[in-house]
């Protein structure tokens, strides 16, 4: 099943390459670079929104109880690292697409 799908995909890439006059390996590289750009671009949105939300809530809590500043800062940095995780996942995929494929 997997081998049939792989063979058909390779045939389609070959046909597209021959129809438009590009080498097949170049076409794969072009597609990989395009995919890497989309991947990192869309992935950065979620991380940024999440961390902005965390920062806003932290400032709000600090305004309500200024004596908890140290603990609130530490918790904010911890929550930042966790919210960044999915952005880092898309960074890994983008780096693999650029450098390995």
């Amino acid at each position: 099943m997997d081998a049939v799908w792989a063979a058909e995909t390779a045939k389609q890439v070959q046909e597209t390459a021959q129809a438009s006059g590009i080498d097949s390996a170049t076409l794969i590289k072009v597609a990989a670079l395009l995919g890497a750009g989309f991947c990192m671009g869309v992935g950065a949105i979620g991380a940024a929104i999440g961390e902005g939300f965390i920062g806003g809530k932290t400032v709000e809590s600090m305004a309500r109880q200024p004596e908890l500043q140290g603990a609130l800062t530490r918790t904010m940095i911890l929550a930042d690292a966790i919210a960044e995780t999915t952005g880092v996942y898309s960074l890994i995929v983008a780096i693999v697409l650029i450098f390995v494929i």
Binding site: A81, E84, T85, V88, Y89, L91, I92, I95
Partner: peptide
């Protein structure tokens, strides 16, 4: 997610 968070941050930083 536990392992990939550590790996991704460090790998991307080093790169």
């Amino acid at each position: 997610s536990h392992s990939l968070r550590l790996f991704g941050n460090l790998f991307a930083g080093g790169l």
